[in-house]
Design a protein around this nucleic acid. Structure first.
Length: 567
RNA sequence: CGGGGCAUGGCGCAGUCUGGUAGCGCAUCUGCUUUGGGAGCAGAGGGUCGGCGGUUCGAAUCCGUCUGCCCCGACCA
């Protein structure tokens, strides 16, 4: 393809709103254009990348025996009522009515529809197992779309759903998908990890995430090389250290702390550490208006763990200022467990504190030198906090490391959650009706593109992994309008490389060399060939790989073989 | 949803406080020159200053209201 025929508008200036590298580069390179918040147009160059990702995904799904189909993105509400998710899914589900006032939604995922298909099409255990998949547009009305296509509202997902007679078969199907996913991400050329994960709104039992390692990732993963543990930090359980709280050495004292309402301010005000303070968080309860959660000041509450506690309403909801006052008689910022009139849970680490600091349930006052049992009964102890680097691995192999990542794939064992709710059954060999066991498996196709850029770029632009580059080779003629031999060689290389099956982009625009080099680097084509009059005198053109700094001279006639040896 | 901010040619911004004929850079078009890392000169086109309402002789600028967009935020207790 000749670049003069591709309206490529690259931007020299960085768009103001783009925060992350991938978002900036995708806009600057003309891969995407924003239509509205969280909604993006995929321009021709970006579409080529998207196609390549989709092709790899399809090839590996087909190889694993999955069957492609496509389901509507508009879905009738009845199905969602059947599964219970019309009520459960919340405002992320975009709902609408048709002209007859019937309820519909834009599909954020397709468990309901596929289960409906399965209960009509699958009757006998002899048809199982089956795995259906599609590559299709999803819509999730995110609270805050951001980072370009990384967290967009409309995005492309490959979703697959498997149906099995029993748990053993589900396990086998799950492993098959796990292997297929590994092949997909290996072929994409991405550095990733597979980690245990929370199954969230999709439901089911076991699930694992595929995370592309990148500093800008929205997820954090914890792992231990010694024992092979790896999980999303939000699901890492933290055992009690086994250390009892040291004996009290201070008397409890009421201290005036005017206006000191945060842990950071408190620690500074008292000249102590946040890890010597107790923070008291009030959340909505399901039996009482409020439940208090007590954590060490330097620790973070883990929402998933907290909402599984007895008495805590799910999803976890923090109380607002007025609600806190109604429940405790004190404004936020000065709460503590001493004589607090609400049910409480305390984290292991907080239960091991002695002589700690906490709010006095009086505005502008805290207690110091507080001790469990002596000053306040120790509430139920639980694992409430999110793991951090250095916490012990649950498998006992030593301290955990923590890194950030981008979730690009997620696989679940759903079990019979949807098949029970929607009566998706088959007859087994004995003629008995049995709910099918289900698995579901997703890859964020559009997000993969952004993740690839986060992981592969430099100060000049994108450096595409070979498998998903929009073109493999870019040919840059120097001043073609002034040199007939350059012009001829340009046309010759275009034809020869194309015939050799290479995807070639020829920059025949009437631009100066520097301009073309800058664009070639920005759009990240892996292989670059420069045609110049001076090299042609020796019958040579110049080759440079996108991530290399040195140029190689190659005879014109052997350029195809040379490129093949590099590809 | 709460808090903060922004809205002025295609993009990035100034001008708003202190009302008086709408500007800069990039991009686009034409011509000449230039030609190995985002060229120079000359000229040209393109904006009802987000919408509506108000104040005023006069509004991008002041007031009200609506809309859109961006950032931060379950961490505060």
């Amino acid at each position: 393809m000749y670049l003069s025929r591709l309206p490529l508008t690259t931007l020299k200036e960085t768009p103001a709103d783009a925060e992350t590298v991938s978002h900036r580069l995708m806009l600057r390179a003309g891969l995407i254009r924003r239509l509205a918040s969280g909604l993006y147009n995929w321009m021709p160059l970006g579409m080529r990348v998207l196609h390549k990702v989709q092709t790899i995904v399809r090839e590996e799904m087909d190889r694993a025996g999955a069957l492609e189909l496509v389901m509507p993105s508009v879905q009738p509400a009845e199905l969602w009522r059947e599964s219970g998710r019309w009520e459960d899914y919340g405002p992320e589900l975009l709902r609408m009515k048709d002209r007859h006032e019937r309820d519909f939604c834009l599909g954020p995922t397709h468990e309901e529809v596929i289960t409906d298909i399965a209960r009509h099409e699958l009757m006998s255990h002899r048809q199982l197992p089956v795995n259906y998949y599609q590559v299709q547009t999803k819509f999730r009305d995110e609270i805050r779309p951001r980072f370009g296509v990384m967290r967009a509202r409309e995005f492309i997902m490959k979703d697959a759903y498997s149906f099995h007679l029993d748990e053993q078969s589900l396990l086998e199907g799950y492993e098959l998908m796990r292997d297929a996913y590994r092949r997909v991400f290996d072929r994409l050329g991405l550095e990733y990890r597979i980690v245990q994960a929370d199954s969230g709104a999709i439901g089911g039992s076991r699930s694992e995430e595929f995370l592309v390692l990148a500093a800008t990732g929205e997820d954090a993963i914890a792992w231990c090389d010694a024992d092979g543990f790896a999980a999303n930090v939000e699901v890492v359980s933290i055992a009690a250290s086994g250390n009892a709280a040291p004996d009290p050495s201070h008397e409890r004292e009421l201290v005036a702390t005017p206006g000191v309402g945060t842990i950071a301010e408190l620690a500074r005000f008292l000249g102590t550490g946040a890890d010597r303070c107790l923070k008291t968080l009030l959340v909505k309860g399901n039996e009482t208006p409020a439940v208090a959660l007590l954590l060490r000041g330097d620790h973070e509450l883990n929402a998933i763990k907290a909402q599984n506690l007895h008495g805590v309403a799910a999803p976890l909801t923090m109380l607002r200022g007025a609600e806190v006052e109604a429940a405790t008689g004190c404004e936020p910022g000065f709460l503590g467990p001493v004589e607090l009139p609400v049910p409480m849970h305390v984290d292991h680490a907080a239960a091991e504190l002695s002589d700690f600091v906490c709010g006095a349930n009086r505005p502008d006052y805290h207690y110091t030198g507080v001790n469990w049992e002596r000053d306040v009964d120790l509430p139920g102890v639980a694992d409430l906090r999110t793991a951090v680097a250095g916490d012990p691995s649950p498998l006992g192999g030593g301290p955990l490391s923590v890194a950030r990542g981008i979730e690009v794939g997620h696989i679940f064992q759903l079990g019979t959650k949807y098949s029970d709710a929607m009566d998706a059954t088959v007859l087994d060999a004995d003629g008995n009706k049995r709910s099918m066991h289900m698995g579901c498996y997703g890859i964020g196709v559009t997000r993969v593109v952004a993740a690839a850029i986060e992981q592969n770029h430099d100060e000049h632009g994108i450096i595409w992994p070979a498998a998903i580059a929009p073109f493999q080779v870019i040919v840059v003629p120097i001043n073609p309008d002034r040199s007939e031999v350059v012009r001829e060689t340009m046309a010759e290389l275009h034809d020869r490389l194309s015939e050799a099956g290479l995807e070639v982009l020829v920059d025949d625009r009437a631009q100066r060399p520097g301009f073309k080099f800058a664009d070639a680097d920005l759009i990240g084509i892996p292989h670059r060939i420069v045609i110049a009059e001076r090299g042609l005198k020796a019958g040579q053109v110049e080759y440079k790989g996108r991530s290399e700094s040195d140029v190689t001279l190659v005879p014109v006639e052997s350029i195809v073989d040379f490129l093949r040896s590099r590809a």
